[in-house]
Design a protein around this nucleic acid. Structure first.
Length: 580
RNA sequence: GGGCUCGUGGUGUAGCUUGGAUAUCACCGAGGCCUCCGGAGCCUCAGACCGGGGUUCGAAUCCCCGCGAGCCCGCCA
């Protein structure tokens, strides 16, 4: 069923078109949201009509409003001319009825859109499995997983894919290090997780490679063998990186991030698709061979790329493929297995993504990926750098957040909750705070990591939203204990705070749909806060339990708000807890 | 040198796609609110569209020129 605001929006446009017609105005109506709710739910400015009709916008507005007042209406309750604007007020009774009805029918599934029949392959994280996540890299799984959840709620079948770079330099260095260095060569780490224990081998091997020609030669030999997909070489690196990957998966799982498929890069070499991509590019007419070399490239200048070098190579002088070549093959494969491709990439991949996209066109791909780029997270003292030891590991951030959440719960409710309950709540609150803090900001904005912001539990944060949800749960529990028998009656909802809350609940399906359409996870984060804030205002203004004839309606409203908060939090991958 | 992205109160941030009325919200700061369903809450006050041009009746929003920050310009990934 269509959401109240969608119906309203369509009706407003239709009414305006009819009014324009009856007044002989040949123009496309403009509809916008007024700055203040007291001015209505939608508005149409009449400035652009002034020239056309040779009348003042003020006169036009009142003429249009008068014309519309005579028309039959459904969700549009009131039409008013206010200066040069025509303001439309939604029929609040209908909004309440439609929304409460939908929520009571659909329950937890309210906000889940009907199936689109589309399959979406959403690639995210795809980090080199050579060490633990730091908070910069953590932006990828959080944005990615939130998008996965958004797309699922928007009615799509989604495959969340992690493209594992098993042929690259990073894993080769790691593998060499693990197999050639002794524990005495490296500095010990406290954490038992494999990604933390193994990354030090990578770091040491990386350093040695720069000093020792023999090491460099051995690593390059290994790299050459993995690039040729020599089975022993691939097994060799795989046996090492799986340990790191396990550690990374563990961190992701702790954050409620789940990947459906791990696709090793070597797949697209083994199955011959990379070779086919190379051939297709060579025949495309846009590629050229380097003289006296097997190397091939496409000059990207013809596609608007500028800079010191515009040449994009897809075959090396020794005839082997490059990372981007294989990435094209991978994307070609994806394009044949889904209706929509979405990638979450760091901003450093912008040029590569452009090169891949242009080449996909050249080889006749049916569709191109939609890419969400995110900017990097830096520290107040500068760029994050693993080499210089200037990093904050994700695991440390999660531990710290959960620890602080634990202190908070213990201080508030230490005497009524069991140790186990407090631990569970702390985990949900701490993890939620971290996820929300990262996802609430537009991906393309750079973030400077500050502990006090990452660990904030009040204001626009996950704990605030979780708290609102728990508050609903608490009221419903209390009502049940008190044996509240009041019948739901949405006709009894008319306090302004009740209406505001219902209006925000009504938006959920639109918010999900729009977030999926525009790939904007932060829109859901903003919405979650809006609902929670409206809930708290309602809570302040309206007594629920013991409110007599209003009790039934208000209990339903609390139930509806709880369902929306739970569903919205779930979309953000944050636990909707019953108590905290 | 060239390109891409970003720039909104002290700090962080929404709005920018599709120009429109008084620019959203949070943190910090100042002041206030529990005999009442959970104070991780609520209320009041203070404070911002990087600069300059242009388009327009109208620009945070579109265009151009600057400035500042990030990222990229490898037969690496």
């Amino acid at each position: 069923m269509e959401s109240p605001f969608k119906s309203f929006g369509r009706e407003v446009s239709a009414l305006l078109c009819k009014a324009y017609g009856s007044l002989g105005l040949d123009a496309e109506p403009v509809v916008e949201t007024p700055p203040d709710p007291s001015m209505g739910d939608s508005a149409s400015p009449c400035f652009n009509l002034a020239k056309l009709a040779r009348k003042s916008p003020v006169a036009l507005a009142s003429g249009i409003a008068n014309a519309i007042r005579g028309m039959e209406r459904d969700t549009v309750y009131r039409v008013e001319a206010a200066g040069p604007y025509v303001n439309f007020f939604i029929n609040e009774e209908r909004v309440v009825e439609m929304t409460m009805d939908a929520i009571s029918k659909e329950g937890d599934r309210y906000g889940v859109l009907p199936p689109t029949g589309n399959k979406v392959i959403l690639e995210h994280t795809s980090a080199n499995p050579n060490g633990p996540f730091h908070v910069g890299r953590a932006r990828n799984p959080i944005i990615g997983d939130t998008l996965v959840r958004i797309f699922r709620k928007a009615g799509n079948e989604v495959d969340a894919q992690f493209y594992v770079d098993d042929m690259g330099k990073q894993v080769a260095i790691l593998a060499w290090g693990v197999n050639n260095l002794k524990p005495g060569d490296i500095t010990a780490v406290e954490r038992e997780k494999h990604d933390h224990k193994l990354v030090v081998y990578y770091q040491k091997a990386n350093a040695l490679m720069g000093e020792d020609e023999k090491v460099k030669a051995e690593i390059h030999d290994l790299l050459r063998r993995t690039e040729e997909c020599e089975p022993e070489a691939l097994d060799y690196v795989t046996s090492v990186y799986t340990g790191v990957l396990e550690g990374m998966v563990e961190s992701m799982e702790r954050m409620n991030v789940r990947v459906d498929s791990f696709i090793p890069e070597s797949n697209v070499v083994k199955d011959g698709s990379t070779a086919r991509v190379i051939e297709a590019l060579q025949k495309s007419g846009y590629a050229e061979k380097e003289p006296d070399s097997k190397a091939w490239g496409v000059d990207m200048a013809q596609f608007g790329v500028t800079g010191r070098s515009t040449k994009f190579y897809f075959v090396r002088s020794d005839g082997t493929s490059l990372y981007a070549t294989r990435d094209i093959a991978y994307h070609l494969w994806k394009s044949e297995h889904c209706d929509r491709m979405v990638n979450v990439l760091g901003e450093d991949h912008r040029l590569e993504a452009k090169q891949v996209a242009e080449c996909l066109k050249l080889v006749g791909a049916g569709k191109l990926p939609e890419v969400v780029f995110y900017s990097f997270v830096s520290l107040p003292e500068g760029k994050m750098s693993t080499r210089r030891g200037r990093v904050v590991f994700l695991d440390d951030l999660l531990d710290e957040a959960v620890g602080r959440a634990y202190d908070e719960v213990k201080a508030r409710r230490g005497d009524e909750l069991s140790e186990d309950e407090m631990r569970r709540i702390a985990e949900s609150v701490g993890i939620g705070a971290v996820r929300y803090n990262i996802v609430k900001v537009q991906p393309e904005k750079a973030i400077t990591f500050k502990w006090e912001e990452a660990l904030a539990f009040d204001g626009q944060t996950a704990p605030f939203i979780q708290y609102s949800h728990a508050r609903c749960a608490s009221i419903l529990r209390k009502a049940k204990e008190a044996g509240a028998l009041s019948k739901p009656d949405s006709g009894k909802l008319f306090h302004p705070s009740e209406i505001d809350l219902v209006k925000s609940l009504a938006k959920l399906p639109d918010v999900i749909g729009e977030a999926a359409e525009t790939c904007k996870p932060h829109a859901v984060a903003t919405y979650a806060y809006e609902v929670a804030a409206n809930l708290n205002v309602f809570y302040r203004d309206c007594q629920v339990i013991g409110s007599g004839e209003f009790e039934g309606a208000r209990l339903s409203l609390i139930g509806a708000a709880k369902a929306v908060l739970a569903n919205t939090l779930d979309t953000l991958g944050i636990d909707a807890i019953e108590t905290m």
